[in-house]
Nucleic acid binder design. Sequence first.
DNA 1: CGCTGTTTTGAGCGTCCTCAAGAGTAGTGG
DNA 2: CCACTACTCTTGAGGACGCTCAAAACAGCG
Lengths: 253, 253
Amino acid sequence: MTPVNAIALPPKICIGSRAQANSACTNCNLRGLCVPAGLSSEELEHLDTLVTTRRTVHRGETLFRRGDRFASIYAVRSGFFKTTISSEDGRDQVTGFQMTGELLGLDGIGDSSHNCDAVALEDSAVCVIPFARLEGLAHEFAGLQREFHRVMSREIVRDHGVMLLLSGMSAEERLAAFLVNLARRLEARGFSSSSFVLRMTRAEIGAYLGLKLETVSRTFSKLQNDGILDVRQREVHIVDPIALSRLVSDDAA
Amino acid sequence: MTPVNAIALPPKICIGSRAQANSACTNCNLRGLCVPAGLSSEELEHLDTLVTTRRTVHRGETLFRRGDRFASIYAVRSGFFKTTISSEDGRDQVTGFQMTGELLGLDGIGDSSHNCDAVALEDSAVCVIPFARLEGLAHEFAGLQREFHRVMSREIVRDHGVMLLLSGMSAEERLAAFLVNLARRLEARGFSSSSFVLRMTRAEIGAYLGLKLETVSRTFSKLQNDGILDVRQREVHIVDPIALSRLVSDDAA
DNA sequence: CGCTGTTTTGAGCGTCCTCAAGAGTAGTGG
DNA sequence: CCACTACTCTTGAGGACGCTCAAAACAGCG
């Protein structure tokens, strides 16, 4: 009913091929976002032979948990996930939010068991990529190998960015950085970069940004009062994108 | 002169082979710590053909800078490094401290240019590992490929741990976690886990842990008053290792 | 021995957290 | 259909932890 419905996040990405058809990647309209981004068409066809199974994960369910045996990585086909790690004393840290085309499970390779929980924040579907077979294929096709290395490296760079954010930024800067990042990723997927619906709670945003949920809420309110955002619950409209970006690391004006 | 000299960090790791000899990895006594950890002796020999050049980096010099073209990764042979990223407004974040056997430069793969500065905290030496050739070799030898994936994955897991630390822990917990981690890594290298010399300043520890240097200093003093540490400048003696580990995520007693 | 950079310690302040209450929203079942 | 429950979000008041500013002790090096 609200006008924002029109710009809701995931309008059920329509798939070019049936789930069973073995042209999983070749015809997938996420090609440009997912692993296949840098591959030749020949390599792509080989990737197709790999990605034969899909899996749906309903809202609130886990795709995998910490300690699960690692066998596959996953590409988000539709929906939205969070990954979390938790310390012994119960606090937990959201290590990332994954949207369409992004990978889950890379942290499981190191010791062959998953090191975080992956939870669907809405009904989602993933492509299952058996890791042994991916390695086998990467072994044959240098392009795929290289692309996979790139993906892992970018994940490391991303994590370093989050470290910078957690280390030195104010609540306002953190939330601004979070929203700018989200907007950019949504835009890359063909959605509006100025209006969207958050898929996560204030508490989950806080667990990602190193803030308490009350602080997240207060900061949203402040950005609204400053005329930068228009926030109604999870619906976010970025009124002044320039001011928002200026907030990200820019106190030393 | 001080008794702690005896337990100083790097007693110039003695190398089993000459720098030029092409048995770089096979005879290296860092075998168990470095990339070769999981490799067969045949694969090791091939690795030798790869690691032909070394490079020395004097204290304060950079091994590479952000923006430098990425061509190689580096394994620390002796010495000690920090890697840093800096935000536009000048604050910088230490993303890691690397000691003997650890890798530098993995964050450069993603977009073929380095994404951080790597600075030697003391006179150091590294093995240069040309990345294109590493990929070529990994392409041939599945074991090497797999081992490399493991190394990258572990780096991601490590970063997630740091995110947890930066996100939710108190200054005392952060410093305790830092020292416990350092002690464990030193022990793995045959050094004392209870007495060592820090290679970095309070400011650098702070830039890693998301604290100001004054806070790092104060926290050291507090741990000393509590009888957990004995600190004299950069010389650290862990008096009560159990109490120190208890500090790491253990407030919910 | 003076210079420079690092470390320690103090006092006051600000940001974010804690505790708490109330409003808004969604899903369920009578 | 609406009441009921559970969850999420907002807002307030007070307090704690770490930051800022500042000065002095200490160590290393020419």
